[in-house]
Design a protein around this nucleic acid. Structure first.
Lengths: 337, 337
DNA sequence: TATCGTTGCGCAAACGATTGAGCAGGGGGC
DNA sequence: GCCCCCTGCTCAATCGTTTGCGCAACGATA
């Protein structure tokens, strides 16, 4: 690979002149003719700045890490796209990481930040992370922004309007005439689960609807969790006529389990989920869902990380614009009577 | 962040001694006592080697890129896990990239390799890539290994046993008694589509079954492609009683479309797909599928890239062990009569 | 007692890029 | 004619690591 030195030699100038021209420094003070020779030489040699050299000298990588629990979750597609768009616009690159078993303070973060592979990171923590681990993040001074994960005040954070998402989903069932509305939620510890729960509760309260005991499960967000939730809820007496599921993956599992048990959706049971994704369109019946703005979350998170890197400011943001939006498909209908 | 110099100062030795100890050089020639002082100092200061410094000096990053068309495709989960496991065992890190619109020779590859961000890469090209673009890869001397993408001989490659996968799927329908077996395949240009096609054909030929004209569609591997394929196939006369789908995403769409058209699966139509993933378990009815060994492909690809990096050897491998495996669920049954 | 080999380190030169300081030469103001 | 400033570059230090080489000190051998 060609270096600055190679380009300089070919253009007959010094290395510094080349550096200044190619990274177009504001006060480069190079004549038009020289500038042209340098640009030509660089393109003839297919010059590309060496990442390590640049990073070493400038102590900046222009890379932000994006670490999520499960990279192949369809929900993260949009988030990643948002993150990449924002990063690209600002001259950064996104480095994707998984954090399957990664607790804050764990190996992945230490490597990425500690070895200087990234300048900062957006981090979504899995629900299994004990709150204690969160505090380790505080101790590190690294520019970390939590995504859909932690309550404000610790480090920076960006979150969806989970409350409103669950509210809208619940209202949809209420408007269809349901009253026995159950809620298949995430783990009790989960930050998002808490927020979605308030939306569900508020919708019920506003409509002055009371639901039987046990109408909320708190199993988790996986497909299997959804299956479990359905079995628990259908064992209740009286049975719910509608279920709000807090996560689309769980909803897919819940729906599959309903089919397995011979429950007719939406005739005997309506299902609405928070989150939309391509999987929701391809279940049977297609899932009615509240589309959340993951794209915007991605953009906002990266913007926030970069601001943190460049100015040191930290902030807590909730993405409310665009607002969560109900997408009515075929898994919801008025209750049977 | 602490540097080698900091550690050296604290331990009262030279930088080189520290470097040799911490990167345990084979002929470090350091006394046990000094070694201990160095190790202690390093851990007290939480020393971590600076990535840029090391990469610059050694001209090695110990990073391999893994670039796939769609990172959120469930099929790649296993592939990535395999890749990461193999990389970790060999002291490498995996850097994930998307290649949505990335043609070989395009920007992503140029950045990753040209700027020295990775030492080599495993690359899965989308089906839309014109074969011409492939040749650009040859010109670059970079250690690139193609995954499920190109015919052998160009650069290194690792592929699934697509032929056998399609063969097994087709045989399953034959054994159930189907004869009017259609094939929903990928784009004609697609390398994998060609290979799967030979499996389908061979199974039919061996069973001495002839199918009507038009029983193969070549639309593509997306969910929508699957929907389109179903509509085309069901417009044929006589209608197929079974369909082999070359890709699980297309199969999900195809199944959803069948439900939409009121076709009963498996009573009126059997569907079997090549590839298995969690989505296949959660359709209705659950999809019978041929499980392909993506995990092993990931491992093999990374092993191949590293071999290419370290020794320069290149190879073409087909993953045949473990073999593709039929997972019978509920989307297939004997034909109605 | 010279000589030699080994052990146990330190010195200093890279790697490629950035950047403050310096230095010629020319033009303008007085 | 002198001074100063501006233009258009070059010099050289620096970032953190790795690594070939050098060099004491010391025990062993001749």
């Amino acid at each position: 690979m060609a270096t600055l030195g190679d380009v300089a030699a070919r253009a007959g100038v010094s290395i510094s002149a080349v550096s200044r021209v190619l990274s177009d420094a504001p006060d480069s003070r190079v004549s038009a003719a020289t500038r042209q020779r340098i640009v030509d030489a660089a393109s003839e040699l297919h010059y590309r700045p060496n990442f390590a050299g640049r990073a070493l000298k400038s102590a900046r990588t222009q890379v932000v890490g994006l670490v999520v629990p499960d990279i192949t979750n369809a929900l993260f597609t949009e988030l990643m796209h948002g993150a990449e768009d924002e990063a690209t616009e600002r001259g950064y690159t996104v480095l994707l990481g998984r954090s399957d078993d990664v607790r804050p303070g764990g190996e992945v973060i230490a490597r990425l930040i500690g070895e200087g592979r990234v300048d900062g990171m957006a981090l979504q923590i899995g629900d299994g992370v004990p709150p204690a681990g969160l505090k380790d993040l505080l101790s590190t001074q690294a520019p970390i922004v939590l995504v859909n994960s932690a309550s404000p005040g610790l480090v920076g954070s960006v979150t969806l309007d989970d409350h409103r998402g669950a509210l809208i989903a619940t209202q949809h069932l209420l408007e269809l005439g349901h009253e026995r509305i159950a809620f298949a939620n995430g783990l009790p510890r989960s930050f998002t689960a808490k927020r979605r729960r308030t939306g569900y509760k508020q919708a019920l309260a506003t409509a002055k609807v009371q639901v039987p005991k046990g109408y909320e499960t708190r199993v988790g967000y996986t497909v299997d969790n959804g299956r479990t939730a359905l079995r628990r809820l259908m064992a209740l007496e009286p049975r719910p006529t509608g279920i709000v599921v807090a996560n689309v993956n769980a909803a897919v599992g819940l729906l599959a389990e309903a089919r397995r048990l011979g429950l007719k959706v939406p005739d005997e049971l309506s299902v609405v989920t928070v989150h939309d994704s391509w999987t929701a369109e391809n279940t049977w019946p297609p899932l009615t869902a509240v589309k959340m703005q993951f794209y915007t979350v991605g953009r906002t998170a990266v913007r926030s990380v970069i601001r943190r890197i460049e100015t040191g400011e930290t902030s807590d943001e909730v993405v409310t614009d665009p607002a969560p939006e109900l997408v009515v498909r075929e898994s919801t209908a008025p209750p049977a009577r």
